[in-house]
Design a binder for these strands. Structure first.
Length: 424
RNA sequence: GGAGAGAUGGCAGAGUGGCCGAAUGCGGCAGCUUGCUAAGCUGUUGAGUCGUUUAGACGGCUCCGAGGGUUCAAAUCCCUCUCUCUCCGCCA
């Protein structure tokens, strides 16, 4: 959400943001028009209310005869007020629903573009492997080694479900634990979060309205299963005013993630690339309302993840996500795409976003500035640390060997009881 | 799931229809005073939002868990919900 006053004064910036992000530009003017109307009506309501209040105070002291006359007049204005209040309420709701759709302007160096094909490559790290044998896909590899069972996953839960057995399950756990330790070492506080959350959390982080189709809903209890622990992690302090010296708040969580993947029929149907349930270690930072600080933190968060990928000896690239592929609330997003031999391409494994105060306004999450003063909305950022099974694709395929076994990268071996290879 | 109690400002806690945005205490802030490890005294101190203003200020409206209702008038009366606590049941 954006600051209404700021939108009024910078309507062109918001319109431009909508154009660049390929979102509906019309909402900007719908918002402005409704907002103006609402403010007019609100003023009338408040004035009428003020009159009514003062005359009501006098009523208590009047003589019985005068009182009856005054009472009649009060009742009449009261009826008028009720009408106006109703109108004001309706308008307020309309204004809010338009406000929820306004786009956060992207950073200046976000490339203009329509979709992910126009994302700009900003770094390439590691060497894409060249195999002098017939390299297998992770699903063939997994089946041969008996460690991935998609068929039975589908039997249990429908398409896009899977089972990991033995060393695949162990490798997944090893990677997740390594990722957690990596972040804890860098000063992040580990949090265990709920993954079934209220609607406010989904709205507060910007997933709703708009993303309902993507989420599994527990409608009987009016809860949603999160698609990422960014949702609970960012929402923890909603409605609160934090002390300045608590910031920045750097946190990491491991959680299961659930996505319906509606509208992706026929896309990435093979293997573990696009699944309904996965594990993810996510980093979330809340800090002061300072654009420069935010940018620096964003870079640092990106590096936490690229360092991790390097440690696991995986080749990847970083892209600066273009305007059309950016979400409504994001100021900028960098994706890490990891090399996946079976796709003969880099595939998205990480997504690092910064929001400025877009999420925190919706969440009403503020802090008291240094030395006191009015509460300000925090800035929020998040990034994937590791997501599995997607990372398993990269681990299995990139580290496969001529004899059909898979080399376990050194950093993960301590988490696998010293094991060096899968499939001997 | 059953029974009961409760939700008021940073905290504690009063307030059962108009004099209540709210006593009092603690805490915070400002000043004074004194000096033997700190205290005493005085004053001040809720938030949000809109508008006027050069500043500082001034004014309107809203807020006593949330939402509805009664009333000219609600922290106070009524209804619904949420949350917390105690007891019982169930349970990884």
């Amino acid at each position: 959400m954006l600051d209404s006053r700021w939108v009024r004064e910078n309507a062109d910036v918001v319109r431009d943001a909508a154009v660049r992000k390929r979102l509906d530009v019309g909402v900007v003017d719908s918002f402005l028009e409704r907002d103006q109307l609402h403010r007019d009506v609100l003023l009338r309501v408040e004035n009428l209310r003020a009159d009514l209040k003062t005359s009501s105070k006098k009523l208590g002291k009047l003589e019985p005869e005068e009182r009856e006359i005054a009472l009649a007049a009060q009742r009449a204005s009261k009826a008028e007020l009720k009408e106006l209040e109703k109108e004001e309420q309706g308008l307020r709701a309309e204004v809010r629903s338009f406000a929820m759709l306004l786009p956060q302007p992207p950073a200046d160096d976000v490339p203009d573009g329509k979709d992910d094909l126009e994302n700009a490559e900003v770094a390439i790290v590691g060497k894409v492997p060249e195999f002098d044998f017939e390299a297998l896909s992770h699903y063939d590899l997994g089946e041969k080694l008996g460690i991935i069972d998609i068929k039975r996953g589908v039997k249990l839960s429908g398409s896009r479900n899977y089972l990991l057995l033995g060393d695949a399950a162990r490798l997944e756990r090893a990677a997740l634990q390594f990722a957690l330790d990596h972040m804890i070492q860098r000063g992040f506080e580990m949090v265990s979060v709920p993954t079934l959350v209220k609607r406010e959390c989904m709205e507060g982080t910007g997933y709703f309205p708009g993303g309902e189709e993507q989420a599994y809903l527990a409608e009987r209890d009016d809860l949603a299963l999160v698609g990422t622990s960014e949702v609970p992690l960012t929402s923890i302090h909603s409605g609160e005013t934090l002390d300045f010296d608590k910031l920045p708040l750097r946190r990491v969580a491991l959680s299961p993630c659930y996505r319906r993947e509606a509208g992706t029929y026929g896309k990435d149907t093979k293997g573990l690339y696009r699944v309904h349930q996965f594990w993810k270690v996510e980093q979330v930072v809340l800090g002061p309302a300072d654009d420069a600080w935010s940018l620096e933190e964003h870079k640092a968060m990106l590096k936490h993840s690229t360092d991790l990928m390097e440690a696991m000896e995986l080749p990847f690239r970083v892209v600066n996500v273009c305007t059309g592929d950016l979400g409504q609330g994001q100021v900028q997003k960098w994706d890490i795409e990891t090399w996946m031999p079976s796709r003969n391409a880099y595939g998205e494994t990480h997504s690092a976003s910064r929001f400025h105060d877009f999420q925190t306004r919706r969440l009403n999450l503020r802090y008291r500035p240094e030395g006191g003063g009015k509460p300000q909305f925090c800035h929020s950022l998040n990034n994937t640390v590791i997501a599995s099974p997607r990372v398993l694709i990269a681990l299995l395929e990139n580290h496969q060997q001529a004899d059909g076994t898979v080399r376990i990268p050194e950093v993960l071996r301590p988490y696998m009881g010293g094991q060096e290879v899968i499939g001997d």
